[in-house]
Design a protein around this nucleic acid. Structure first.
Lengths: 129, 129
DNA sequence: CAGCATCCGTGCTGATACTG
DNA sequence: CAGTATCAGCACGGATGCTG
């Protein structure tokens, strides 16, 4: 009989619930403020730096650069420089990034679909506390 | 023929890519450091405060309390007090929280499944830069 | 047992200015 | 166009101590 450890649904050697687990780095990287929106902005294919900046409204150059650098370093996106004048830089999801995309899209969709439920819950909570 | 706006997959009135969109609050709330692991810890049903603390290794009481309070306020979990001695407090996912669970589990599973790919990517990136 | 209150360092964030 | 550099603020997060 196979045991059913529902809270251990993966057969991976790693478990982010454990303190020293290196996957916590990844979890932290994925919970950076702009990561979700930047990855989602690349859903339809490669985008230039300025196009991402326009798509992800409100992101500063610093934060966008930093986020792109982090995603590139973690193998989620590629960076392609075309040395034309003016210079052109395109960012595109890697296979790994494409695997991550639907997950982060789900987070975004969940937020958009339930924002009103959440607001209602907050009103109730704040009334009672 | 229906138009295919791939980057607008929802029919919601909200779009987190827009600067003033209230769903960004939710995105920020969901990217809090301990939210993912706490929600996942409740996958199998209600858990006591101390049980969550033990399951989510390394979380401080302050951060756990803060995270639970936030999740409760946003309608993701319920808090049930049993005034026995000693007191007993159980936390459980709401219907909304249960909807969020598989998404955050996917993030966790993705991290665990791809940590080695990510580490390799980092080594390559750091060598080249 | 289940927490809240407080202090305090560090690191994230954004604005501003500058460069190839 | 696509960034980097620097600075100032403050919020996040951890450690500690206390309470019903």
């Amino acid at each position: 009989m196979t045991s059913t450890l529902e809270n251990s649904p993966t057969n991976s050697a790693y478990n982010a619930l454990l303190a020293g687990c290196p996957t916590r780095e990844v979890l932290n990287a994925l919970s950076d403020k702009w990561v979700g929106l930047v990855v989602v902005s690349l859903a339809d294919g490669a985008l230039r730096y300025s196009e991402i900046a326009r798509t992800v409204e409100g992101v500063s150059q610093k934060m966008l650069s930093q986020t792109l650098r982090s995603l590139e370093r973690n193998g989620m996106i590629t960076r392609t420089v075309t040395p034309s004048t003016p210079i052109r830089v395109d960012y595109e999801l890697t296979a790994l990034g494409a695997e991550l995309l639907p997950i982060l899209q789900a987070v975004k969709t969940f937020s958009e679909a339930n924002i009103e439920n959440i607001r209602d819950a907050r009103v109730l909570y704040d009334l009672a506390n």
